[in-house]
């Protein structure tokens, strides 16, 4: 919901209107996606719809095929069977920041963008991620967390409809990760792309997403909305309940943790 004028609430997306209007437009539409490597099936028929403004966390154990699915959505893997419809250029954030070491920060953020407004937007985004004064730095002069923030700015600089993230915080230390979670939540609420976040961190999924999917042996074994307030989730009673359900779904009992 966006506050339009004093006292007037205007729906940002039509989903909030209790079914009275059409749901938000579809950003990702995948149907019966299958993928095998050398005859060994990794994905066995995935159906997935993501709508505008949705933040979807895709959980799975290692080897469950979650990264494969993300790569298919990113059009980096074009050998999959089934139909996939995604925006022309979905933004991708990788586990490594993947900044070009020979380009300074700002050109890295602008990589591939040519429209006149991009430069302005890139500057704003660097300010957003707290690195406005490092636009002329070389990537190797930045810390790991700073590099990942630049990568986040780069991902959003093209004003993408869809942001695909493959364990973007997996390589960061715990404290930096907490800061990145807050930053990502702020950025997503400000630029409102649809997000698909691949992670094996249940807490991360429950803290950030408003819908969670679990991929088990190449099939979606769980798909449900996260009905928790936007902030202060960790202390919410629903957090623990959902967390242990997801852990069980992933084959890890709460006691094992």
């Amino acid at each position: 919901m966006v506050l339009d004028a004093p006292g007037t609430l205007t729906p940002a997306t039509t989903t909030d209107d209790a079914g009275a209007a059409a749901p938000a437009p579809v950003v990702v539409e995948a149907h019966d996606v299958r993928r095998a490597f050398d005859g060994r099936g990794v994905l066995h028929g995935i159906d997935l719809t993501v709508r505008r403004g949705e933040f979807v966390a895709l959980l799975g154990r290692s080897g469950s095929g979650k990264s494969t699915l993300l790569r298919i959505l990113a059009k980096l893997d074009t050998d999959a069977a089934g139909t996939v419809s995604v925006p022309a250029l979905p933004a991708v954030a990788f586990q490594d920041s993947r900044l070009l070491p020979w380009a300074r920060v700002l050109p890295n953020v602008l990589l591939g963008l040519r429209d006149a407004a991009a430069r302005e937007r890139a500057r704003t985004l660097l300010d957003d991620v707290g690195l406005g004064d490092r636009a002329r730095a070389w990537p190797r002069q930045l810390s790991g967390g700073e590099q990942q923030r630049v990568a986040l700015a780069r991902a959003l600089a093209g004003a993408p409809e869809l942001l695909l993230m493959d364990e973007p915080f997996g390589a960061l230390d715990a404290l930096t990760r907490i800061r990145m979670h807050r930053l990502l939540r702020d950025l997503v609420s400000r630029y409102s792309p649809a997000v698909v976040l691949v992670t094996h961190d249940v807490d991360e999924a429950v803290l950030l997403a408003d819908r969670v999917l679990v991929l088990t042996d190449g099939r979606l074994s769980l798909d449900e909305p996260i009905d928790l307030p936007a902030t202060g989730r960790r202390s919410h009673p629903g957090f623990t309940a959902l967390r242990s359900r997801l852990l069980t779904e992933l084959g890890v009992g709460d006691d094992d943790h």
Partner: peptide, 15 residues
């Protein structure tokens, strides 16, 4: 990995 990145940014062959 950088070639992959370039793909996701829509870079053509020359770029």
């Amino acid at each position: 990995r950088f070639v992959e990145l370039a793909t996701t940014r829509g870079l053509g062959r020359l770029a």
